[in-house]
C-alpha cells in the first residue's frame, strides 16, 4: 500500500444471500483520514457492504482492499485485518459480564499481548476521549444507551485501528442520546481517523462526510461530496433525502 493509495477500496463487489442479490458491482474507496458516509434505504446493501469490509460477510466476486489486506482472499489473516479495522455496531455489543475497563483491555491484552498496566492506562485514555473517564469500573448495564455506545467506540479505539467502521451506531438511541455519540465521532473525524459509516442521520452526514455514497438496489447509485445531499442528481436520492424531484 503506497502512501496515497486508498485505505479502503471496493471494486466490482458482488454478494448474494441465496437468490437475493444484495451487492451488485459496488465500487468505492476511502482515502487516508477521510470520512465516507454510506446512505440508502433499508435493504439497499449499505450495511452488507460495510460488513464485507471487515470480512463479516464473504463476497461472491470482486476485490476488497483494506489497509493493505486483500479482504476477499481466502487465506486472509483475519486477526491481522481486525487489528487494523475497528467496528462499532448498532447494538453496542459490550460484554455484559465485564466492566467497561475489562471490555476495553480485553483485546489489547489478548490480541496485541499488551501488558495489563499499559492496557489499563490506554483504557483510561480512550474513555476520557469519549467523555466516560469515571465509568471505568461500571458494568455495561449501569450505563445509558449513549454511554454504552461511546464505551463501545472507546473499546475499538483502544486497539488503535487504522480505520473505523460504524454501522448505524445511533439507530438504537433516542435523539437526546444520539447527539453525545455523534459528537465523539465528529471529534474522531477532526483527529484524522479514517472512517466508513452507515447512518440515517442526514444532518450529521452533511457536516462530517468527505464523501457520500448513496446505495440503491445493491449498487452505488450516486456518489460525491456532501453537497449531493443538497442537490441530488438522481430522483432516487432526491426522494431518499426528502427534497422531492
Amino acid at each position: 500500500m503506497t502512501k496515497d493509495s486508498p485505505v479502503v477500496s471496493l471494486k466490482e463487489v458482488h454478494k448474494s444471500f441465496g437468490a437475493l442479490k444484495v451487492l451488485d458491482g459496488v465500487d468505492f474507496s476511502v482515502g487516508r483520514g477521510d470520512v465516507l458516509v454510506l446512505i440508502g434505504r433499508s435493504g439497499s446493501g449499505k450495511s452488507t457492504a460495510l460488513r464485507c469490509i471487515d470480512r463479516f460477510e464473504t463476497i461472491d466476486s470482486g476485490e476488497i482492499h483494506v489497509c493493505g489486506h486483500r479482504v476477499d482472499a481466502p487465506d486472509i489473516d483475519l486477526r491481522a485485518l481486525r487489528q487494523d479495522v475497528g467496528i462499532v455496531f448498532q447494538s453496542y455489543n459490550l460484554f455484559p459480564h465485564l466492566t467497561i475497563e475489562q471490555n476495553i483491555t480485553l483485546a489489547p491484552v489478548s490480541v496485541k499481548r499488551m501488558a495489563k498496566a499499559e492496557a489499563r492506562e490506554r483504557a483510561a485514555a480512550v474513555l476520557a476521549q469519549v467523555g466516560l473517564a469515571e465509568k471505568l469500573d461500571a458494568y455495561p448495564e449501569q450505563l445509558s444507551g449513549g454511554q454504552q455506545q461511546r464505551a463501545a467506540i472507546a473499546r475499538s479505539l483502544a486497539m488503535q485501528p487504522k480505520v473505523m467502521l460504524f454501522d448505524e451506531v445511533t439507530s438504537a438511541l433516542d435523539p437526546e442520546l444520539t447527539g453525545e455519540v455523534l459528537k465523539v465521532i465528529e471529534a474522531l473525524a477532526a483527529d484524522g481517523m479514517t472512517m466508513v459509516m452507515v447512518t440515517h442521520e442526514m444532518g450529521f452526514a452533511r457536516g462530517i462526510a468527505d464523501k457520500v455514497v448513496f446505495m440503491h438496489a445493491g449498487k452505488v447509485h450516486e456518489t460525491g461530496t456532501a453537497s449531493i445531499l443538497a442537490a441530488p442528481a438522481t430522483p432516487e436520492l432526491a426522494q431518499f433525502v426528502g427534497t422531492g424531484f
Binding site: 481486525r82 455496531f89 447494538s91 460484554f95 459480564h97
Partner: peptide, 28 residues
Amino acid sequence: KPQWEAAEGLGLSRTQRMIKVILPQAMR
C-alpha cells in the same frame, strides 16, 4: 450472535472468544 461478532471484530481468536466472552455468559 452480536456478542460473537463483537469479539470477532476485536480480533480475538476462536478460543479466546469462547473462553473470555461466550463461555462466561453461557455459564450463567
